[in-house]
């Protein structure tokens, strides 16, 4: 009973982190048809910024986190304007290589500024304890991650389903040329979406630092994980990303609890099975 509860709580928290990081990747990949291997770099940048703001500038956590997220978005914007908008037009092979190149530069840049050791993100005391939910105690940090993840899902749903920006974004995903022809500034939508995705990745990176520690090699170490969430979920599908992140988070956590020796094999076998059965992902369009 307690094992199942552990798997559920850890798995859902892990899934939320994966979702926050991967959802931006999924939307940008669906929208711009770009394979972006450097997306994890924004989680790294967010983590590195918050590390600097907390440990060097001494800002309070609740101020440092939003600042780091905004800072990441501010860095993502010129990257989109200068690099990515050219990469959209490349073939997929060139996209893979160009974005690997960008990931390398991000790693080298963070290492140059902060070194290659683990970047600690000290959380406030309020987030360190455990909460008694009656039947068991749960780490406060897990609860914060899960609540933040669910809040993100709700916000994204409202943004995409209920706002004009969301309609325009979906229109541009469906058909870029037609959207432009009808007066939708697709370039601006791309840039806004890209920055939003980068900001979400930064938040996911910061909140998930306990599970996926922040260090310079972060973008390459977890790149495959994030991309698999996107592939399994289906390009451009937020619901798909959510299901995939939650599912893979649970599968990974469960297999580590239950079959610790074969966790990785089990995880990848699941991914292969899903993708073999549904090459376009769970919610992807064929």
């Amino acid at each position: 009973m307690s094992l199942i509860a552990n798997i559920l709580i850890d798995g859902v928290a892990y899934g939320m982190v994966l979702f926050m990081i991967a959802v931006g990747l999924s939307v940008t990949m669906g929208l711009m048809r770009v394979i972006n291997l450097a997306h994890g770099g924004f989680a790294l940048i967010g983590g590195a910024l918050v590390h600097g703001l907390l440990t060097r500038a001494g800002l309070p956590y609740l101020l440092a986190v939003p600042l780091a997220v905004l800072g990441t978005m501010a860095l993502a914007w010129p990257m989109e304007r200068v690099l990515y908008r050219r990469i959209y037009r490349f073939g997929e092979l060139q996209q893979v290589l160009a974005t690997i190149g960008i990931a390398f530069l991000m790693i080298a840049g963070v290492n140059y500024l902060l070194g290659s050791s683990l970047l600690s993100i000290p959380v406030p005391e309020a987030m360190q304890g455990a909460v008694d939910l009656g039947f068991r105690k749960v780490s406060m940090h897990r609860i914060v991650v899960i609540v933040a993840g669910l809040a993100m899902v709700a916000c994204l749903y409202l943004l995409l389903d209920r706002t004009r920006f969301g309609m325009r974004l979906r229109a541009a995903v469906d058909n870029r040329d037609t959207a432009a022809m009808l007066g939708i500034n697709t370039g601006a939508i791309y840039a806004a979406t890209f920055c939003l995705g980068a900001g979400l990745a930064a938040l996911g990176g910061i909140l998930g630092a306990e599970l996926l520690p922040i260090e310079a090699y972060y973008p390459l170490r977890y790149m495959v994980l994030f991309l698999m969430v996107v592939a399994v979920g289906g390009l451009g599908s937020i619901t798909g990303s959510f299901l995939a992140a939650l599912g893979l988070g649970l599968v990974d956590t469960a297999s580590r609890y239950l079959v610790p020796d074969f966790g990785t094999i089990f995880f990848f076998a699941c991914v292969i099975a899903i993708l073999a059965a549904r090459p376009a992902g769970l919610m992807g369009r064929a």
């Binding site: 592939a231 990785t264 990848f268 992902g281």
Partner: peptide
């Protein structure tokens, strides 16, 4: 049978499984 991102992911996954 796969294309694009799915093909990339599957090819990576095969190597990772063998490594493990």
């Amino acid at each position: 049978r796969a294309h694009g991102l799915t093909l990339l992911m599957l090819s990576i996954a095969v190597a990772q499984v063998l490594q493990e």
